[in-house]
């Protein structure tokens, strides 16, 4: 047995597959892309930002039509812009908290803060900015914070996701935690994120086509018809990526985690890193 293990270990050394579960993030990313390339040979890598519409021409046509004739999220980013530019009571604005005044930076989030050893999501940075300027925090998953985030993301449209995992054990540990969350089965129904968005991507659960996780984060905050139902106003259907996590956890009858705490921040860190190199296209429109 020991001998066999030894052989396997040496073999995997030779062919370059890490013997343990601790592959480096960049190896993971290569394998992740290769998996989808193999599964959907006709889908161009850059098209994954379109979710299920990258896989299904018929749905894509209906979606395009809807976007062209009645883009329901049209007012979200302009509303976010007005909030973004409105001075705090102390006269400063959000721009003062961010590099490049907050313009064209979405693609770098979430990021690891080497001073605190924690992950900073874009929404986290927005609320931290408010706090440091003596303003109250906004709710995390929808409403104003989603509008501001959508505006900031829209100024990154056309830039490529560029999440960095520095070679710092604390950052790697958070990355591994997010990766475990993604691949672990959970909830009474016993599904992992990967069950539906890696292995099941392209299959249908009832009438729902399952999207590939590659490209998941590029168009968030997203406008969902489901979220907008019965509501009106510029943020009616808008939600952040962590709002979506909660929904997907609930679907499998798992208790959702709190938004913007360690667990989902780790998940977002891993999840966003897996879309590195893809174009930001926010806000997106989905069912």
């Amino acid at each position: 047995m020991k001998k066999l293990l030894l052989i396997i270990t040496t073999l995997s050394f030779i062919i370059g597959i890490p013997a343990t579960g601790m592959a480096s993030p960049s190896d993971d990313l290569t394998a992740f892309r290769a998996y989808f390339k193999n599964k959907f040979p006709n889908v161009a890598q850059d098209d994954y930002i379109n979710g299920i519409y990258a896989l299904d021409a018929e749905r894509r046509a209906a979606w395009k039509e809807f976007e062209d004739f009645a883009p329901p999220y049209e007012d979200a980013a302009p509303y976010g812009k007005s909030l973004f530019n409105k001075p705090f009571k102390n006269g400063k604005t959000y721009a003062s908290c961010f590099e490049n005044n907050g313009i064209g930076i979405r693609q770098n989030y979430p990021r690891f803060n080497s001073k605190t050893g924690k992950i900073v999501t874009l929404e986290g940075a927005i609320n931290a900015c408010r706090k440091s300027n003596g303003e109250k925090k906004l709710g995390w998953k929808k409403g104003k914070i989603a509008a501001i985030s959508a505006y900031m993301a829209s100024t990154s449209n056309g830039k490529r996701i560029n999440v960095k995992i520095p070679n710092d054990p604390r950052a790697l540990k958070i990355y591994e935690r997010g990766k475990s969350h993604f691949y672990a089965k959970r909830g009474q129904l016993n599904f992992s994120c990967a069950d539906c968005h890696v292995f099941g991507a392209g299959s249908s659960a009832r009438a729902n086509l399952l999207s590939p996780a590659l490209g998941h984060v590029t168009h968030f905050p997203v406008w969902r018809k489901k979220w907008a139902k019965g509501k009106s106003g510029p943020t009616a259907g808008l939600g952040t990526i962590q709002r979506r996590y909660g929904g997907c956890n609930k679907q499998v009858r798992a208790k959702p985690f709190k938004a913007q705490k360690a667990e989902y921040n780790a998940l977002e860190y891993f999840h966003a890193y897996m879309s590195n190199g893809l174009l930001v296209n926010s806000p997106g429109l989905r069912q």
Binding site: G200, S203, S204, A205, R206, A207, N208
Partner: peptide, 18 residues
Amino acid sequence: GNCLACHAIKGGKLAGNI
């Protein structure tokens, strides 16, 4: 059961194919 989420079953509508 929601078996139709994943299995085509005779007489069932909107079945999945997982």
